[in-house]
C-alpha cells in the first residue's frame, strides 16, 4: 500500500513538475513519455526505501546509489539532445542555458525520489490520507525552494532608443555593431526594438556580464516575439552588448511582433542561469570594490 501509493504520487509529481510552457520543451510527446518513465523509476526507488529498511532488507537501499548514476545519464541525454538541436535554432540557446536545463532535468528526478520517500514513510506510519497530505506539503515546499530568480529580480528592464552613426548602430551610448547596407538600416528603423537592462547591484552586474546569460535572453525574446530573420540574414540576429563602464546591457532585436511592452515582459521573465550566478558582494574584496 505504502509503496504503490508513493509510486503513483511520485510519478504524478514528475508530471506536475514538467512545465509545458512557452519554451516548447519538453512538450514533445515522446520526451514527456521518456521523463514520465524515468519519473516512475525514481518514484519506485524512493518508495521502496522505507519499507525495505523496516523489513530489514538493507541491501535494497543500495539501489538509491544506483539511481544517482542512472539520473546522471538523464543530464547528459538532455545536454546532447539540446546541443544537437542548436545548429537548427534561429537564435541558439547557448551552452549555459542548455546546461541549466539538463541539470534541472536531473535534479527533478531526485526531487521525485524525495517526494516518494517521504510519502511512503508517512503512508507506512500514519495511513494513506496523511501520505497524500505530506506529498502536497513536500511538493509545495520544493516548488518554492526550487524557484530560481528571473531577470526582473536582479535588474531593471526598460525600453530605449537606438540610432545609427554612419554604419554603427548604438543603443543609447552603447555600440552594438556595424551594419553597412542601407536596406538593412531601413528595416531596423522600421521594426527594431531596443532596451536597456540595468543591474540593481554588483552581483547582478556580474550575472549579466556572462555571455551565456545574454544568449539565453536573446533566445527567449526571439522565441516569444518571433524573429525577423532567416538563415541568410544574420544581420537581424538579436544582440546584447555590455556598457563596459557601468555594466548595463543594451539589447537590440528585430521582432516580427514589434510590441515594446511584450518585449520588456519577455526579457523580465528570462530565468537567471545557475552557471551565471556569482556574488562578488559576499566577499570583502567585492564589497570594498563596490564603494
Amino acid at each position: 500500500m505504502a509503496i504503490a501509493g508513493a509510486v503513483i504520487i511520485g510519478t504524478l509529481a514528475r508530471y506536475w513538475m514538467m512545465r509545458r510552457d512557452f519554451r516548447q520543451y519538453p512538450s514533445y510527446p515522446h520526451a514527456v513519455v521518456n521523463h514520465l518513465a524515468l519519473g516512475f523509476v525514481a518514484a519506485t526507488l524512493g518508495a521502496v526505501a522505507v519499507p525495505a529498511i523496516v523489513a530489514k532488507e538493507y541491501t535494497a537501499v543500495t539501489f538509491l546509489a544506483l539511481a544517482s548514476t542512472q539520473f546522471r545519464e538523464v543530464r547528459s541525454m538532455e545536454r546532447e539532445m539540446l546541443g544537437s538541436l542548436e545548429k537548427t535554432e534561429m537564435v541558439p540557446r547557448g551552452s549555459d542555458f542548455i546546461e541549466g536545463i539538463a541539470r534541472t532535468f536531473e535534479a527533478r528526478n531526485y526531487l521525485v525520489m524525495l517526494i516518494a520517500l517521504v510519502t511512503s514513510a508517512v503512508i507506512f506510519s500514519f495511513g494513506l490520507l496523511y501520505g497524500i497530505a505530506a506529498a502536497f506539503l513536500v511538493g509545495f515546499a520544493i516548488k518554492n525552494l526550487m524557484r530560481g530568480k528571473v531577470i526582473k529580480d536582479i535588474a531593471k528592464v526598460r525600453p530605449a532608443g537606438f540610432r545609427f552613426e554612419g554604419a554603427n548602430l548604438f543603443v543609447e551610448d552603447v555600440q552594438i555593431m556595424n551594419l553597412g547596407l542601407p536596406e538593412v538600416k531601413k528595416t531596423y528603423h522600421k521594426q527594431a526594438k531596443a532596451l536597456i537592462i540595468e543591474p540593481f547591484d554588483d552581483n547582478a552586474r556580474e550575472i549579466l556580464a556572462n555571455a551565456g546569460q545574454r544568449q539565453a535572453i536573446a533566445h527567449d525574446a526571439a522565441l516569444l516575439l518571433g524573429i525577423h530573420r532567416d538563415v541568410d540574414t544574420p544581420e537581424f540576429t538579436p544582440l546584447l552588448r555590455r556598457d563596459t563602464d557601468t555594466g548595463r546591457i543594451a539589447m537590440i532585436i528585430v521582432p516580427i511582433e514589434p510590441d515594446e511592452k511584450c518585449l520588456v515582459e519577455a526579457v523580465k521573465n528570462v530565468p537567471v542561469l545557475e552557471s551565471a550566478q556569482s556574488s562578488p558582494l559576499s566577499s570583502d574584496a567585492g564589497k570594498c570594490a563596490s564603494d
Binding site: 556595424n178 547596407l181 542601407p182 541568410d232 540574414t233 544574420p234 544581420e235
Partner: peptide
C-alpha cells in the same frame, strides 16, 4: 549596394561598412 546584398544573401554573411 546591390552587389553587397547579393553577396550577403548568398554567403549568409553580413556587410560591414
Amino acid at each position: 549596394e546591390v552587389m553587397a546584398v547579393t553577396l550577403c544573401r548568398v554567403m549568409e554573411a553580413v556587410a560591414h561598412d
